[in-house]
Amino acid sequence: MSRLIGLVLVLAGVLYPFAVYFGMGHFAPWQFALLLGALWGVRALTSEGRPGGVSMALTAMGFCLLLGLFNSPQLLRWYPVLISCFMLTLFGLSLMRGMPLIERLARLTEPDLPIVAVRYTRQVTRVWCLFFLFNGFVAAALTLWAPLSWWTLYTGLIAYGLMGLLFAGEWIVRQRVRGRA
């Protein structure tokens, strides 16, 4: 159940900019808040001790509460900024405490990582932190100063393209690093 809710939240996040762009003429912001708040509420109940699971869900529910109370179309556009902040926090905290997030993911397929790979995964985690910082700033700037169409284009398409480029670039670099090791 927890994975299904996580998948629905990811799908809602990916489709969110388009839902806002095309749905604003048909739905009020409080209706978006109700749907998002319900998804995050279920996520809080099924987080099963995941790092930041409950705190992220409660923060998102707080955002949804504000969105519902103010019923503001402008406030709708801050959700991608919130998600970038969540991701930055998740990756950044993993650098400060315990095992970096990318190292955890790498150990799923290769439990005995050599020390060079551990250092590499730490660097990749830092790169993702920089990406989420950049992405959050761009989304915030577009929220404040750009028309809805630009915001939708960036948060619904360009940001995911940049993530794909980062994934692909990291994969290429990883192959070269492995070749040297």
Rank of each mutant, 00 (worst) to 15 (best):
P80L: 02
V42Q: 00
Y160Q: 06
N71F: 05
V42T: 06
M1K: 13
P100A: 01
G92I: 02
V81C: 11
Y79I: 05
R119V: 15
M96Y: 01
L93R: 07
F18W: 15
G52Q: 10
Q175E: 11
L95H: 00
G62I: 09
G68Y: 00
G98W: 08
H26W: 14
W150L: 13
G37L: 03
A44P: 02
S94H: 11
A181S: 13
L130T: 12
S47T: 07
G156D: 07
L157Y: 06
C85P: 12
P114G: 08
I5F: 00
E48R: 10
G92T: 05
W40E: 02
R77S: 04
T109D: 13
M99H: 13
T59V: 13
L39H: 02
A168N: 08
T59G: 07
S94A: 09
F131T: 04
R119D: 13
A19L: 15
S55V: 11
G62M: 05
Q175T: 14
L93A: 05
W78V: 11
T109G: 15
A19Y: 08
F27L: 13
L45P: 00
A12H: 04
L76D: 04
L76F: 06
P29S: 06
Q123S: 15
S84Y: 03
M99E: 15
A28F: 04
L142W: 14
L105W: 09
V118D: 08
G161T: 04
L101M: 13
T59K: 02
F32Q: 05
M61C: 00
